[in-house]
Computed example of a mutant assay.
Amino acid sequence: MAAHATTDQELAPGEIAKPNTGWIWKTFLILVAITAVEFVFVFFMDAGTLRNSIFIVLTILKAFFIVGEFMHLKHETKGLIWTILVPTSLLVWLLVALVTEGSYVGEVLQNMFK
């Protein structure tokens, strides 16, 4: 059976490879930094469309980073990445359009029955 060690040097039989925790700490620090920026914008800006848009963009950025790191999407071929990203972005666009249209229709119906 082939050895599945990902180190440059061969391991002796029974030896356990050293854990590569550097990328875990790097990922942790990047996610903490993005979350800290999100908290700064949410708690120190006045409520409004700009604040919400910044928060949503940072949350989507964090989600893409998590998918790339922990689901190993960044190591896949470009075709697979585009196959996943394009439908996801179209779904997000559809949700934004439906919420926008739904709020407009709700306002029209509310004003019609006053």
Score class of each variant (00 low, 15 high):
F39K: 03
A97H: 07
V37K: 06
T21H: 10
K18R: 09
A2E: 11
S103P: 04
F64T: 03
T35R: 08
M71W: 12
E15D: 10
F64Y: 12
L11R: 06
A17F: 07
E69M: 11
F44L: 08
L61S: 12
W82Q: 10
I84H: 02
K74H: 12
V57Q: 08
V96A: 12
L80T: 09
S103Q: 01
G48H: 10
E76Y: 11
H72C: 13
F65D: 02
V86K: 07
F41G: 04
V86G: 04
I60A: 05
G106I: 00
L98H: 06
H75P: 00
E101N: 12
I16A: 14
L11T: 07
M1R: 07
S89Q: 10
V40R: 00
A47D: 11
F55I: 00
V96G: 07
S53H: 07
K78R: 11
M45F: 15
I66D: 02
K74D: 11
G102L: 01
F39W: 03
I56T: 03
F55C: 00
I34V: 06
W93M: 09
T21C: 12
A47P: 01
G14E: 01
I60H: 04
V37E: 05
Q110S: 13
A12C: 04
M112F: 15
E107F: 14
F41D: 04
L98A: 15
Q110M: 08
A12K: 09
F113D: 01
I84G: 05
A12V: 01
T83A: 15
L94W: 15
E76H: 12
V57K: 01
D46F: 13
V40F: 13
P13S: 12
L90E: 08
A33F: 15
F41L: 13
A5K: 04
I30F: 04
A12I: 00
I84L: 15
L58S: 07
G48K: 07
V57H: 06
A2N: 07
Q9Y: 12
A97D: 06
W25K: 04
V37T: 09
L80W: 13
N52M: 15
L11Q: 00
A5C: 10
G68Q: 03
I54Q: 11
G106P: 01
M71Y: 10
I60E: 02
L31F: 13
P87W: 12
I34F: 08
L50E: 10
N20Q: 14
F44E: 03
I16N: 02
L95N: 10
H72Q: 14
I54D: 06
G102E: 01
W93N: 01
L94N: 06
